[in-house]
Design a protein around this nucleic acid. Structure first.
Lengths: 107, 107
DNA sequence: ATTATACATCAAAAAAAGTTGATATATTGT
DNA sequence: ACAATATATCAACTTTTTTTGATGTATAAT
């Protein structure tokens, strides 16, 4: 994982691409809003989010996929619904506690 | 700054754009490598970085500007040279301490 | 004063990411 | 079995970012 530390100092190819992917996922106002809403409300289905965020469904799915692929959110299927929620440990591993209650999970 | 907290819960237009800009700056392998090198070496001029990172000068300047505009690095001019270094408080305000010694400043 | 070095900036081209509307799949209710 | 709902995915298009090479500006060295 932190390939970097073992090689620290020595030049070399680290896994910056993994971090790139994670920061890319956060690098969008809409996705930050989604993270924020999930952080506030806990668990939401896509239909809830379309209303909260005011996006067409296909657009929302696109952004949810990016957050999911980056590991920041988890999906739980319940019948026809897909419920999403923050993946707290993943978020905490990347974000500063100073961002608590915006994107960073409280408690 | 954290407009979010005062309004938390109430829907509304927060300053997600500020965070978007910061995460966008981090959302690039090259720029992460630059952050890493600055974190390791402390202070570097553009010419040092071109060698460390192996980029043409104009490309490097482009990426340094993005990091600088986002507030993650500071510039100090000494004669013809521009020395860059991490802006520690800014980095710490965004990144998890778990990223210590990669991008997050040690100590 | 001229030449060389360090760096920023610019404009054009290329690549990547985001948007849109349509379609596909699965599940639930009748 | 049929209709309706929730959601994912796809392909065409638009927008944003990145790259590249050239040019400009300032400082330093001769």
């Amino acid at each position: 994982m932190k390939t970097v530390e073992s090689k620290a100092g020595t030049e070399g190819d680290f896994s910056f691409d993994v971090y790139e992917k994670k920061f890319k996922a956060l690098a969008d106002e809409l996705r930050l809003k989604i993270m924020y809403e999930l952080n506030q409300k806990g668990q939401l289905c896509v239909c809830d989010l379309t209303e909260l965020v005011g996006l067409p469904q296909s657009k929302l799915s696109y952004h949810l996929k990016i957050l999911h692929d980056a590991g920041f959110i988890q999906r739980e299927k319940k019948g026809t619904w897909n419920y999403y929620q923050l993946n707290d440990p993943e978020v905490k591993a990347i974000l500063s506690p100073e961002l608590c209650c915006i994107f960073y999970p409280g408690q």
